[in-house]
Design a protein around this nucleic acid. Structure first.
Lengths: 110, 110
DNA sequence: AAAGTATATTGTAATATTGCAATATTAAAA
DNA sequence: TTTTAATATTGCAATATTACAATATACTTT
């Protein structure tokens, strides 16, 4: 078969996996890094910055947008992409919960 | 044409992407959830807990192990899997850096 | 040693992702 | 209105992932 069996997992597990998956490519990490580094964030800048062709970057931006990790505003001719703080917080919360539990839990084995 | 161009990105970007990718499947999130919930962590328990066949789970465990997010100790007949706190901290650190920068950075656009 | 139990590996089909050339769309500038 | 610039979409080839049946391995118990 080959397709992920999302229906068998909880909404939280699926959402966390979706967010992680969106971060799961170095180009998309690099895009987030770049959006954090610069003040102005136009797509063509990203194309110049990264070693990938324009359609490929457009695709990665689309995936980050689908995961709601970034938002894009049309600015005349070009598009201003920004990080979506809220969704990053959702991810952060999930993730912090896991690491907090980890700290509480005494390593009883391994 | 089809393979990720890892060589063009920084080690940090690649490592962060690798860790995120390992978390990027609901079954693997569920495995981590389970390892956090229970005290004893035997592979067969995971097989009973999740709605996937044994070889599929074995494969997911392998991926988590490759990403160094879990470790496995042989316990006689079975294997005791545990979360690797250290690697999770690496991920946490990367991720916290991003969200911290986010908080500092004033939203100048979007 | 033979049978049973737990986990891993192999092989394979279905599906998804990655990357890009070619092309389309949209808005600004000339 | 033609041209230019910025971004998106389409189509396709290469590769990767997901899932599992069948089988292999390794340890335990009988």
């Amino acid at each position: 078969m080959g397709a992920t069996k999302t229906e068998h997992f909880t909404d939280r597990q699926n959402q966390l996996a979706t967010l992680a998956k969106a971060l799961g490519h170095p180009a998309r990490v690099a895009i987030l890094d770049y959006l954090l580094k610069v003040d102005v964030c136009i797509c063509s800048d990203i194309v110049n910055e990264l070693p990938l062709a324009q359609p490929t970057i457009s695709q990665h931006l689309k995936e980050l947008k689908n995961a709601d990790l970034i938002k894009g505003n049309i600015e005349g001719n070009s598009i201003c992409y920004c990080i979506n703080e809220k969704e990053l917080e959702v991810f952060q919360t999930y993730f912090t919960n896991i690491t907090d539990k980890m700290k509480i839990k005494k390593s009883t084995c391994c």
